[in-house]
């Protein structure tokens, strides 16, 4: 299988008031197409920092990072925007839906930042909502939806451009355990269709639903557990 994410000696160093914080302290690993992987670790270990790098929301201080075969160091801001638009889909802990905007319009949003007709965008957005089981709620505003439903809308938004990778930073952090399970089930289904899924989580039960666990501590990878080894 081809590697969709390749990290080599990745560092992210914040300097605050002369104090150096090494959020990522030399991280190297590969993620292959079709993997379903969770990243675990204590608070402050650098999980979100790593996710933001892979999602092209942030750039490393040093080190090389290739996403879907492209070296992000050589990419222009527009290239990075296009990568965020088409190659990766981000799911946030706090859903980050636009208020006072219908579920359908929220899901449509990424399609508006690429070429294509509005009619086609609508069809694809409805299809994405159908995949998360919310096509009957497409005219609802986020405030009219439960937390789990809002997260599904957010997942539909991440899906709508058929990304290679879905990145979810604590997607179940704000949800109860039953709803969390449903969301993980949804990711699992998407993974069955070939989408690479990376989930950050604090909960072992959530991580157990994935096939590989990457453990971080103080910006280092301290363990990389594969399903066959875990079992």
């Amino acid at each position: 299988m081809e590697a969709v994410v390749t990290c080599r000696e990745l560092y992210k160093i914040y300097t605050m008031g002369g104090q150096e914080v090494r959020a990522l302290d030399g991280v190297s690993f590969d993620i292959h197409e079709g993997e379903f992987i969770s990243i675990m670790g204590p608070s402050g270990s650098g999980k979100s920092t790593l996710m933001n790098m892979i999602g092209a929301l942030d750039v490393p201080t040093t080190g090389s990072l290739r996403i879907a075969g492209e070296d992000i160091a050589t990419m222009t801001p527009d290239d990075l925007a296009s990568l965020r638009n088409r190659t990766v889909g981000f799911v946030f802990q706090q859903f980050n839906l636009l208020r006072r905007t219908t579920a359908l319009d929220n899901v449509k949003l990424p399609l508006l930042y690429r070429d294509g007709s509005l009619d086609e965008a609508k069809i694809r957005a409805i299809e994405a909502l159908r995949r998360v089981g919310l096509e009957d709620r497409m005219d609802h505003h986020p405030s009219q939806l439960s937390g789990g439903q809002q997260q599904r809308v957010a997942i539909a938004r991440a899906l709508v451009n058929n990304p290679k990778i879905i990145l979810a930073d604590e997607p179940t952090g704000a949800l109860d355990s039953q709803t969390s399970e449903d969301i993980m089930q949804l990711f699992s289904e998407l993974n069955d269709h070939g989408v690479t899924i990376i989930v950050v989580t604090h909960e072992q039960e959530v991580a157990d639903l994935t096939r590989r666990i990457l453990r971080l501590r103080d910006g280092h990878i301290i363990a990389d557990e594969r399903e066959d080894l875990v079992a």
Binding site: D78, R84, Y113, R114
Partner: peptide
């Protein structure tokens, strides 16, 4: 600002 961040996260370019 957060809305801008979100739009950028899902693919808005600077000029958008």
């Amino acid at each position: 600002t957060r809305e801008i961040g979100l739009r950028m996260a899902i693919g808005a370019r600077r000029r958008d």
